[in-house]
Design a protein around this nucleic acid. Sequence first.
DNA 1: CGTGGGGTTGATGGAATTCAATTGCTGTGG
DNA 2: CCACAGCAATTGAATTCCATCAACCCCACG
Lengths: 228, 228
Amino acid sequence: MLAQAATASHFPGNTLTGHSFAGRDRLGDLGRMPASFAPEQPHQVAFYEANQEIYAQGEEAKALYQVEYGVVRLYRLLADGRRQISAFHVAGEVFGFEADGRHHFFAEAVCGAGIRVFRQPAGEGTWRQTLSAALEALVRAQEHLLVIGRQNAAERVAAFLLDMRKRQGGERQIELPMSRTDIGDYLGLTIETVSRMLSKLKSSGIIRLTNARVVEVLDEAALEALCE
Amino acid sequence: MLAQAATASHFPGNTLTGHSFAGRDRLGDLGRMPASFAPEQPHQVAFYEANQEIYAQGEEAKALYQVEYGVVRLYRLLADGRRQISAFHVAGEVFGFEADGRHHFFAEAVCGAGIRVFRQPAGEGTWRQTLSAALEALVRAQEHLLVIGRQNAAERVAAFLLDMRKRQGGERQIELPMSRTDIGDYLGLTIETVSRMLSKLKSSGIIRLTNARVVEVLDEAALEALCE
DNA sequence: CGTGGGGTTGATGGAATTCAATTGCTGTGG
DNA sequence: CCACAGCAATTGAATTCCATCAACCCCACG
């Protein structure tokens, strides 16, 4: 089940993206977590290729995962194939905890990703750490509910860009490791709508599309105003 | 900040609703939690009237809350007043945990509700219990993301009815303690759309509307088929 | 009996989806 | 180096679904 280190030479997606989250310079909002989760535990780092499955819905949950570099998506499917990505996870973030020992979601690497795997996190301080990470994820999910449930397409895309920006350290230059399909499935929109909204932001002078996967924020205030 | 026991004679909403969740006959999905959360701790039960605030966004989080009876809504607001209810909580469920010591949401009683308040849950087994409850909430929120992000109005209402049914023990008769406005703000729809979808389910012979707040499921299979 | 809030129903407009065509990018092979 | 294939992204036109606006109904309550 664990990924064997793939051919590291063939780094999927644009290499820019592959590097953007590397180096653990950014722990996201998990500053309260130790740099290494449960450091007293022996653990392994696995490399996952772009689009490689980390775990599947229904599988037994027997480990916790921390992103070393790269990006991971968690998602769920409807019977007819409609997909909802509930979260993207970047370097430093922990995912994979489940309430009842079974995974309720799929986890896949968005781009080449290094994942630290913690089996049986039974250490004593670990409960507290896991709780902290779970609460982060909970707040994120609940805030995302507001975006999806009550904001229109333009606001969703703006919120997404600002979120990605914050998680990448607040630079003007934002890298989008994921495809438009991923963004759409995260925001509850179609790829066409995502594209249209990005074009609109661009023609409004709020952002610049260096290329399809790199966005530069020109008017931060306007972008934030969009999210109300 | 704590609610004083309100005039218990004036039970808000229909009294039916007030009773429906009482008696702790149903713990929702928290079966793994002890009947009394952290029982070794001294704690108090507060009564909240319908629509009474339990805590507000931005407030310091200094307690955990367990619903004894009644229903609670957690929600967040946009600047222009749009509201997203991220969760309803019924008897047995725990809410109020926050990642950084501040509440990120509002909590209000939907109808008259008894809430057990746990201050400083520092007990040792408590971490594990809290984690369990937080993970429940996380799975719920993420599953709700799928409903809101990828299902249409009819599917959302059907999913809502099935969820309420499950949480009330699976009876054919479902009570809806919350207003159409609450349901709409939970499902990311307007009250008109919620009403229309309920009418459609009714005219399709899938449900019966005993009255505005009581639904009887006539064709369970059809209802489940709607959620795909 | 009148009043008011919650709920339902109808008509209309608009935002996002769907379907379709085109462009742009990346990697491959001649 | 250029041509081409294949995929991702963009753009346009038509359609659909839901929100909006508005009228009305239903009851609980004074």
